[in-house]
Design a binder for these strands. Structure first.
Lengths: 341, 341
DNA sequence: CTGTTAGCGCCTTCAG
DNA sequence: CTGAAGGCGCTAACAG
């Protein structure tokens, strides 16, 4: 029978609570308490402990802590569809900042719009016992995102409301922002307004289309399908769709683009043809003011989405820890119209 | 004496390996082996195990695994200065993608250019026993980033080479890219070329300035300090600095901007004054082609930085696991000149 | 091929 | 105010 070694050899591994205890001539328990400021440790002892911690360069092992506590220590997952999109990276930054304030961290996952990958990621996050997860869903049916399916891990959706599950969500005022911008186009005398849309199956896509339709309807302008049949996600496709719109016998005099990809694609097409069309779109973006074309965008603070998601998640986690279950909340981030050019 | 309860009550906690073992009528060890495809489990047993896993919805507890193995399971830290900058978010995306391929994950940290926060983040990551960390340093002295100071956690620097420590690094061809772009400005007949720089204490700032100086020197053009004394990080400051340059008695006929913030700031100033100045800069950016001004940029693939960092780190981690220590590597991502307008 | 033993580092519970 | 015991879920090292 071999003697089990207390430490896995003299490798570069960090000192443990035991080492600190030995160094400070106290029991491990006392060190643990001293470090967590658990009332009931004399000032003198605490000082000795902190001294030992400093001189050994001790840092607690989060894995052990997690295991013992049954939860990760302040780790939140973030699942987005495309981090290269400034919208999501700013959301990530807002989330990171809000959590870092509370000593928490973000674990990152990118789905590339693939629902299978989304499912895989949240399950992995659940395995890792993260305290919670913020998801910008790529899927339409969210049942795999239910906390009950994830070992009780709280979930907050961002940019899209829950479907077939009940969880908190942070949303943009997709409908209202689009409605307002469209109304302003109408007010400036436009009647033939085209809509350059996102895939209709997406929440943002359909809400923004709804806002557009509502504004037209309200003004008594019939919705002409020829002006709204194009649904695309990337700049190149948006550009082609716009070109087709501009080639109609009676081209639109204004275009509302459902997001920054579409706005930029539309801009490229308009500029390439030197067309006389007024452009408006959802999402503000850098350099929007320098395009040399009157442009009206629906702006908002993407970081705020992240910060609000953090808030909802932290509240939810705290409630769960107390065994409380409250009704899912829904927060809407306001939008504002910004005019350029 | 109380009976210690095996499970912490009937809460929403996930089934454990033991539960699976019981369900499959085998020992926990067998389940462990079956799941990790550790050779030496009969096909029949494995099938029973997998069955039990499926019916219980079992997922391994990563915290326990980490604790037992003394390392986190495929977790890499990423510390950047500003995730809102597309450069870093694309780097993050490249890293995430490269790691996800190997079942690994990224933990995110944003320093906001604050060295104190950088130090805090890497130490926290070390506490969490991450397998390694990629850092875009905000600090100038990197001793706090030495693996020896971090419990042996491997470190890879990005965008900036190590100072006072020896670790792997992924760099851009800051010098070469700038040199080439400046040379091209000279070749097109420019003599009074201004340099709109980053803080001189930064690696990228000084390397790019060096490239600019080298090109001028090579062409026999003396370096005129009045054309290169401005060093700034954000668009607004760059715009003001450019305006000052344009107001010189003998304004420059061309400007090289050290990064996309400076290029955009310069563009704003040039456009506001309707100045006749040729613009070039480091970093490609969206809409660069639509500014309606001839523009030459030093382009490269930011995602490649992340992917290369992943590669270096994975190699380093594997080597460390084998107890090998090889010389630090340095990878340089090539740049290319892109012309617009 | 499968099971037993022991312990990773920490914290909850109970004794002193 | 401090210490001892024990176990969170998993797996390396030994039996059988």
């Amino acid at each position: 029978m071999t003697v089990p070694q207390r430490r896995r050899a003299a490798d570069a591994s960090r000192p443990t609570l035991r080492d600190v205890a030995q160094h400070a001539q106290v029991s491990p328990m006392t060190v643990s308490r001293a470090l967590r400021e658990d009332a009931g440790v004399s000032a003198a002892t605490r000082a000795r402990v902190l001294d030992a911690v400093a001189s050994l360069g001790y840092r607690p092992n989060e894995a052990a802590r997690s295991l013992r506590l049954g939860r990760s220590d302040g780790l939140i997952g973030l699942v987005v569809t495309n981090l290269a999109n400034p919208f999501y990276s700013q959301l990530a930054l807002g989330l990171e900042a809000a959590l870092a304030d509370k000593g928490m961290r973000v674990m990152l996952g990118n789905t590339g719009e693939d629902p299978a990958r989304e499912r895989q990621l949240v399950h992995d996050f659940a395995s890792r016992r993260l305290d919670g997860v913020v998801v910008v869903p790529a899927s339409h049916d969210h049942r795999h995102l239910a906390p009950e399916a994830l070992g009780g891990m709280p979930v907050v959706l961002a940019a899209s409301p829950p479907v077939r599950i009940e969880v908190d969500a942070v949303l943009l005022d997709d409908f209202g922002g689009t409605w307002e911008a469209t109304r302003q186009l109408i007010d400036s005398g436009h009647h033939r307004i085209a809509f350059l849309g996102l895939p209709a199956a997406t929440w943002t896509g359909s809400e923004r289309y709804r806002g557009y339709c509502a504004a037209l309807e309200e003004a008594g302008i019939p919705i002409d399908e020829r002006y709204s049949a194009y649904r695309q996600r990337d700049v190149a496709t948006a550009e082609r769709s716009t070109t087709r719109l501009l080639e109609l016998p009676q081209p639109p005099t204004a275009i509302f683009a459902a997001n920054n990809r579409n706005t930029i694609g539309a801009y490229r097409a308009i500029r390439a043809r030197g067309a006389d069309v007024t452009l408006a779109g959802f999402d503000d973006f850098e350099l929007a003011d320098l395009l040399g074309l009157p442009l009206r965008v629906v702006g908002y603070d993407p970081g705020e989405l992240g910060r609000e998601a953090a808030r909802l998640l932290i509240d939810r986690i705290a409630a769960a820890a107390r065994g409380q279950a409250s009704r899912p909340q829904r927060v809407v981030i306001p939008t504002r119209i910004v005019e350029y050019g």
